[in-house]
């Protein structure tokens, strides 16, 4: 006869594999992973500022490096992840920031829409400042 436990049974949870258990967990881990790319992108930006401080030649070299195929691929990936992060985050904001006017709560899509609108406005301002227009 097998050894009897004689007490409540505690199931083990794997520290490293739990997120494969279902789709929600996988989506969550994907959202968390996006921060790695956003982090690297931030480092690249900081390097750019540092190179700028070293003078025009240094900055030109940095810009040259940005045009390499590797760099473009990285930027596309980082862009995709940051868009994913923003979209998932925007969709969650009505939970975190409910707004009650009178008796009713403002509809989720209004709060989400306001975030997209804000995003669009900020983007246009930056594109304008960058001298595209």
């Amino acid at each position: 006869m097998a050894k009897v436990n004689s007490k409540p049974y505690q199931r083990e949870i794997s520290n490293t594999r739990w997120y494969w258990r279902n789709e929600t967990y996988m989506r969550y881990i994907a959202r968390e992973l996006t921060c790695v790319f956003i982090g690297i992108y931030t480092v690249v930006l900081l390097v750019g500022i540092w190179r700028l401080s070293q003078g025009q030649v240094a900055y030109e070299t940095f810009l040259q490096a940005l045009r390499s195929p590797m760099s473009i691929v990285f930027h596309l990936v980082a862009l995709a992840f940051s868009v994913y992060h923003s979209v998932t985050w925007f969709n969650l904001t009505p939970k975190a920031l409910p707004i009650q006017i009178g008796e009713q709560f403002v509809a989720d899509r209004v709060i989400i829409g306001a975030h997209y609108l804000g995003w669009a406005v900020v983007s246009v301002v930056f594109i304008f400042l960058a001298g595209v227009f």
Binding site: T24, Y28, A96, L97
Partner: peptide, 26 residues
């Protein structure tokens, strides 16, 4: 809480605990 959101998806009474916890954090 790291806002996985699974609690609110699973809640059979649509209480939305994930939302409540984010509000508590703010």
């Amino acid at each position: 809480c790291t806002f996985v959101g699974a609690c609110s998806e699973a809640c059979p009474k649509h209480v939305d605990p994930a939302g409540a916890l984010q509000q508590v954090k703010i």
